[in-house]
């Protein structure tokens, strides 16, 4: 393998790499062994801490938490996509009266920490005596933040379509609406899809912030299960299981995003460059 940093290894480099490989495997192995030793020493493997999970009632608890997480994520996804579409089109508008406020809103919400947005959703309506469910406080926060990020992704996707496409469309007499609908969107959609999916992974992960306003999502349920004194406070096993659930779901979505990016990048029909996902531009789309 030749990369920027290394040529194809010759005999000496191969030997050196092999030695490094053995050393690093040993180091990683030692690290893993140490963790397992620590787990064992502090009794994390004892039956009492794991027994709960064999029971249907505890599994149901976890599933209820997972369902609450997915419900919040699902609602927020739909609303954030709508929010993003509306604000992206406002930012792409020719009229400054639409463009300026939309730019302000999108930039503002991207600069506010998500937790503070969720606090806004939770505390402020209550201060004025409106009833608001914690689910909706969470969904509002997630929508405002991720909607703003999605608006930027949409805008970048549309802007990435070469200008010749627009010119050509106008030349054959299409109206503005038609240019957007028939020419720009279908091409932009392909290039944005991976970035959209990665942003949805971020959104799904961020539902865990519901933990802080005690919305009973997966992490919160994990705390309830882990906090049971009679089972020896099984926080370690519980959080490991919760982490495995998050990693499986987000991992599958991430792989989908990566696969889409690879596929879209290959397709000749994707005129524009593919909008970068987390992979390339971590912070832009990360949490």
């Amino acid at each position: 393998m030749s990369s920027v940093l290394y040529d194809l290894p010759g005999p000496r480099a191969r030997l050196r790499n092999r030695i490094l490989g053995v050393v690093s495997i040993a180091a990683i192995g030692a690290l893993v062994a140490f963790i397992i030793y620590k787990f064992n020493e502090t009794g994390q493997f004892e039956a009492r801490k794991w027994e709960q999970f064999q029971y249907a009632s505890v599994q149901r608890e976890l599933l209820t938490g997972l369902w609450a997480t997915l419900k919040a994520a699902g609602l927020a996804t739909v609303l954030a996509l709508l929010f993003g579409a509306v604000f992206a089109s406002a930012r792409l508008s020719d009229r400054w009266i639409l463009r300026t406020p939309a730019t302000f809103v999108v930039e503002l919400f991207r600069a506010i920490p998500l937790l503070i947005l969720i606090f806004f959703g939770y505390y402020v309506p209550l201060q004025y005596g409106w009833s608001i469910d914690k689910l909706w406080a969470l969904v509002i926060g997630l929508t405002l933040y991720n909607g703003s990020v999605l608006a930027e992704i949409f805008r970048a996707g549309i802007n990435a379509v070469p200008y010749g496409q627009t010119e050509g469309a106008y030349a054959i007499g299409l109206r503005k609406n038609q240019v957007l609908r028939l020419i720009l969107l279908p091409q932009a959609f392909r290039s944005m899809l991976p970035a959209i999916v990665s942003q949805l992974v971020v959104l799904l992960k961020d539902t865990a912030l519901g933990f802080i306003i005690t919305y009973p999502e997966l992490l919160f349920v994990g705390k309830q299960i882990g906090g049971r004194l009679p089972f020896g406070l099984p926080y370690v096993p519980t959080y490991l299981i919760v982490a495995a659930i998050y990693i499986s779901i987000c991992g599958l979505l991430s792989i989908l995003a990566w696969w889409l990016q690879k596929r879209m990048g290959r397709m000749p029909k994707t005129a524009g460059r593919v909008v970068p996902t987390q992979e390339v531009d971590a912070g832009r789309t990360a949490v």
């Binding site: 027994e51 064999q54 029971y55 009632s57 505890v58 089972f231």
Partner: peptide, 8 residues
């Protein structure tokens, strides 16, 4: 899952 009460 096993049905019933989880007992440590």
């Amino acid at each position: 899952g096993k049905e019933g009460n989880p007992t440590p």
